[in-house]
Design a protein around this nucleic acid. Structure first.
Length: 641
DNA sequence: ACATTATAAATA
DNA sequence: ATTTATAATGTG
């Protein structure tokens, strides 16, 4: 590849030619460009270089370097931005995958390989790896010993690990990292109020290359370059799965179910899928950890497609608090039963956490008989109910109509409507327990005050919305009361049951094995509720998978959402639909999605494609994207959350 | 007829 | 992304 015409042959030495991806986010330049390399410049595959492009200077990443005869007049590589390569092969394949699956120009994908402000070039701290300690926690898991040997021998594979809730969680992550051979990257959910896992990693290793947003740009850049120079361990948020690690041995995604692993700006990647694909291309082990794994990955694990690691049933049940489900009362927010539990706890000088539902939510319609929510006949989204007009409406395709007389699933005629306002909850609770000190935490309070200044330890009743239940924020309590879970269960969204289960499981963890959990729900038999009562994740997963299979939602399909706006929106989206169908997808829509404040006439059009392999559909859509004119905006969302 | 502004094309 | 050529629109 690099030899060329020198040895023995008579011709002149061929020039060095580098293929470069310019870091320019445009479909018109979605390919490599060749440049000459001066003999004194240490340009290698993966180098970050400065090149002339058009009439300006941009940065680019070198894909390959070879001695060959150029086919045309070439410009010279301007300079090396970094002395060492940033993206040694085969890591460039990750960014090819990123560009391909998530339908972005290559320059936009490769831009994610570059650290912020590459001015800082400090010496790199490298750690001499110590002796590998015995694994303490993992061997007691079903499938744990196999994972330990995969880590030690670096035999690859994707592993879905159902963690135990509780204080051992951070240690489990540290233990896996310590067992691994080669470099280790750990991705954790967005760390706004700190992270126990990152703290635990930092106390085990002298220097953990932190690439999360809570660090300064300078520190992130330093960490990024340290990892490119083979520093052993790095950690951060979603983007940690894209950090350089030429000798990657282990890639961990912790709390894998968390929605922040989906990037919400272009490139809209799912960090878990990137992690899996990356580990495969580098021969590393990919571990997805969560006490409540996503149904997508758990389903693949239970079917044997990827590896499955779970705690012994008895260990899982031992973490469960005493759990009760009580029917909500129609005239008060705190039922008689929960009121009694709170009163008893306060008398015993114990502390109480109460979870109130979010303020605004969709009003769902469901059948009292078979307990299914009403779904749109056209696109399968859950219907919402407009109380004033007495009509049902699909939030996805805006199909409206009168509420049906009988349930389309079971023929019963008894519908329930959900979604009463909940503004006065805090006041009602304060007046129900007048002698208790009530501390209220919600997004408004958090925006105004630092978490430390809230004096949570003084509270008898800690009243919060979901935001205040973050592990690093919530105070320890003895009783947790969930005032309403039904709005989450009935949410018009195919992941509603999963989100509800995860929320309840988190509350169960908050109450802890010594505590008590009271759930107010009118659907105590729902699998999201029952799984928490039983302390049995698998119970939830297996039942939810039945529903997913019925409607062909992930993991039984992959999804691609496409949105078009502008003058040619209709024609453009029709072209996309045709491409999707050619690629074997089932397409729902197109439908107009009204925007807040926008005219209905020029509302963007949206379709949802269900397919076996979204990468195949993405490849087809790439051609549409590359040929779409500037005034029509196309937006692709592969693996939408 | 010429200046101003939107639009498309090209980048080694 | 940014520049440059080209078409469309506006102005005296």
């Amino acid at each position: 590849m690099t030899s060329g015409a020198s040895a023995g042959s008579d011709g002149p030495v061929l020039p060095l030619v580098a293929s470069v991806v310019p870091l320019v986010p445009a479909w018109r330049v979605d390919r490599d460009f060749d440049y000459l390399v001066r003999e004194d410049l240490a340009v290698v595959p993966g180098s970050l270089v400065r090149i002339r492009f058009g009439n300006r200077r941009v940065r680019g990443i070198v894909r390959s370097v070879a001695r060959r005869r150029p086919e045309r007049d070439l410009d010279e590589v301007g300079a090396l931005v970094l002395p060492e390569p940033l993206l040694e092969p085969p890591q460039d394949k990750i960014f090819d995958f990123l560009a391909e699956r998530y339908v972005v120009p290559r320059g936009r994908a490769f831009d994610r390989a570059v650290p912020p402000r590459v001015r800082v070039s400090k010496p790199v701290v490298t750690q001499v790896p110590g002796r590998i300690p015995e694994a303490r926690l993992l061997p007691s898991f079903d499938g744990g010993p196999a994972l330990v040997s995969a880590l030690r021998e670096r035999t690859g594979g994707t592993w879905c690990v159902q963690a135990l809730s509780g204080p051992d969680h951070a240690e489990l992550i540290v233990e896996m990292a310590a067992q691994a051979r080669g470099q280790v990257l750990v991705a954790v959910p967005e760390v706004r109020y700190g992270s126990h896992v990152l703290d635990a990693l930092s106390s085990r290793w002298k220097y953990v290359a932190r690439v999360d947003a809570s660090r300064s740009d300078a520190e992130r850049a330093r960490a990024w370059l340290a990892l490119a120079a083979r520093h052993q361990i790095g950690a951060g948020g979603r983007s940690a799965v894209l950090a350089p690690a030429p000798e990657l041995g282990l890639l961990i995604v912790d709390d894998e179910h968390d929605p922040t692993f989906k990037e919400d700006r272009s490139p809209r990647y799912d960090a878990r899928r990137i992690a899996e694909a990356r580990a495969a291309t580098q021969g590393a082990v990919c571990v997805l950890v969560s006490p409540t794994p996503s149904v997508e990955f758990a389903g693949r694990a239970l079917s044997g497609e990827i590896n499955w690691v779970a705690p012994a049933r008895s260990d899982e049940r031992a973490r469960r608090p005493i759990t009760e489900v009580v029917a909500p009362s129609s005239d008060r927010v705190v039922t008689h039963e929960l009121h009694g539990r709170v009163r008893d706890a306060l008398r015993a000088e114990k502390r109480v956490g109460l979870l109130v539902p979010r303020r605004g939510f969709a009003r769902a319609v469901w059948c009292a008989q078979c307990r299914r929510s009403l779904r749109c006949s056209r696109c399968e989204a859950g219907m919402t109910y407009d109380r004033e007009r007495r009509r049902v409406r699909c939030p996805r395709c805006a199909l409206t109509g009168p509420p049906p007389d009988v349930c389309p699933s079971c023929g019963a005629g008894d519908f329930r409507y959900l979604g009463a306002g909940s503004e006065r909850l805090a006041d009602q609770i304060a007046s129900a327990f007048p002698r208790a000190r009530v501390v209220r935490v919600d997004p408004d309070v958090l925006a105004r005050a630092e978490p430390e200044s809230l004096r949570l330890e003084d509270a008898d009743i800690y009243l919060t919305t979901w935001i205040g239940t973050k592990e690093t924020l919530r105070p320890p309590v003895d009783l947790v009361g969930v005032l309403g879970i039904d709005h989450l269960i009935r949410r018009p969204d195919w992941r509603a049951a999963e989100r509800a289960y995860q929320a309840l499981a988190e509350m169960s963890e908050w109450a802890g094995p010594e505590g008590r959990l009271v759930i107010q729900s009118d659907d105590p038999r729902h699998h999201s509720v029952q799984a928490v009562v039983r302390g049995d994740y698998r119970f939830f997963a297996e039942r939810e998978l039945v529903h997913r299979r019925e409607l062909a939602y992930p993991p039984f399909s992959e999804l691609v959402k496409i949105r078009a706006r502008g003058p040619q929106a209709k024609a453009t989206i029709d072209g996309c639909v045709a491409r999707c169908r050619d690629a074997g997808a089932t397409v729902l829509g197109p439908i107009a999605v009204p925007e807040p404040g926008g005219e209905h006439a020029d509302a963007p059009l949206e379709v949802l494609a269900k397919c076996n392999d979204a990468t195949v559909v993405a490849r087809a859509l790439r051609e549409v994207a590359a040929t779409t004119s500037g005034t029509t905006r196309l937006q692709f969302d592969v693996d939408p959350r």
